[in-house]
Design a protein around this nucleic acid. Structure first.
Lengths: 254, 254
DNA sequence: CGTCAAGAAAGTGTCGACACTATTGCGTTC
DNA sequence: GAACGCAATAGTGTCGACACTTTCTTGACG
């Protein structure tokens, strides 16, 4: 028998970073935010089939906006759609997560390179200012804040690359790995190194030292990944996701 | 007054590369393919507001699957959605196209690097085989075939990187720049150089000469871009898209 | 007992209708 | 004659209903 998640106690919330210019606060939007939250918090479990009617009842929203939200989530890789069978929660295997982190690393390093080449001095100042404004007490902030600040830092680099497609892409990736980053942050590993790492990246940017910066970024993300590995295992365990640890070890560049 | 495209003579067709595992041949899918074709062929003009009801009548499909298709196209960047006003055709400015090409270059170069590090020898053989199978008479093929073959070549590199996210990402980008690539191919510029370029890339791959290959790819795409510039202007002219040539020249890396 | 099939139940895909919002057109006022 | 506001129109966002497909249940047959 297929286990079904029990969906009582559903509420809104979640800041929800918007990659593209989109809706405001209609029914469809609420559905999107709520469902994504359910996914991120494992209220909807990996591989599980999503029941539109049940969701519709739980959220008090008709199926049309729910389907709209699910389609959007499908485009973003959160769920998948099988023709006459419906939507399924896409399980992020260890391997799948590493793939995403790898892509993120590729894009961020490229963004840094472009930023060094193109950004005006005052734009680089903005980056430094952004980081200096939050570095104070960074480690004492609650996890959600840290997550937002951290994403903001990296997104700012993307913005300073001058290429909006890079920004959109990075934002989309962030949305997909956010759940695991949150878990990792709650584990509070490597805090100090994270801070130092960001500061070093800012320094390299200010000197427009492309190669140094890219290397730092690569290491930064690699560090994040390794810190995430254990968090991931915990998360998967917590949710008893199906077998997932085989993953033939493939060498990674970050 | 807002000019409205006249949508008579609508038919299906278009191979339609699927980035993610998705639908089969339902109503929604047909709507998606048809509308994307309309967009790609400028039957729906940049900045134009898309009338769901009109589309619904033209295609003989109710608004629900049409909206589903439009949402999907929004996620892919073809159209945008403004809350109570509907969907609009997203104009791809010259600048926007260059952004996409730049992102493509970033991703493809990274894919090549990963392929050199990870792919088994027989996989690299597959790449060579793929290219050798089509290089014969490549230049004589009809544009659509060339386009498919060309995308296939680059997608294969992405696949051999071993990272499915890279494949998906590249496929999505391809879908968005396909219309201009088609125009460029029809212009038939640089055919010979294209062929030589691909062959050289294969050679570098076989030798696992990462740096050489990446450099070749970069040049290859840069060449494509420059060949595309004129084609783009023609296309925009042909469609009298709104002002779009200001684009402060930003230095690009490909 | 296990296998298979037919029927029942559940669920998705699509439709037409309606409420509410934006837009257009028209008449009034200054 | 132009600007404003109001009414009429057009269009989007959402809903409930229904047809068709998949899945589950039950009972007959080996």
């Amino acid at each position: 028998m297929t286990e079904r998640s029990d969906l009582t106690d559903i509420a809104d919330g979640l800041p929800g970073s918007e990659p593209e210019g989109r809706r405001s606060a209609d029914s469809s939007e609420r559905a999107y935010n709520t469902i994504r939250k359910l996914l991120v918090e494992f209220k909807l479990k990996p591989e599980e089939r999503i029941n539109e009617m049940q969701l519709s009842r739980s959220l008090g929203i008709s199926r049309t906006p729910i389907r709209e939200a699910l389609n959007r989530l499908a485009s973003e890789g959160f769920v998948s759609l099988t023709p006459n069978r419906g939507f399924f929660v896409r399980s992020l295997s260890t391997e799948g997560l590493l793939d995403l982190y790898e892509l993120r690393s590729i894009i961020e390093c490229a963004a840094f390179r472009l930023m060094c080449e193109r950004a005006e001095d005052d734009q680089l100042d903005r980056l430094r200012a952004y980081w200096e404004a939050i570095v104070e007490g960074y480690q004492d902030h609650p996890p959600d804040i840290i997550l937002t600040e951290d994403e903001g830092f990296h997104l700012l680099i993307a913005e300073l690359s001058g290429n909006p497609e890079i920004v959109a892409q990075l934002a989309a990736i962030n949305a997909r790995i956010r759940f695991i980053r949150r878990i990792q942050i709650e584990h509070r590993t490597h805090d100090k190194r994270q801070v130092a790492s960001h500061s070093a990246i800012v320094d390299a940017a200010m000197r427009r030292d492309t190669e140094q910066g890219v290397e730092l970024l690569r290491q930064h993300i690699e560090m994040t990944v390794s810190a995430t590995q254990q968090a991931l295992k915990d998360a998967l365990l917590k949710v008893f996701a199906p077998g997932d640890d085989d993953a033939k070890p493939r060498r990674r560049r970050f």
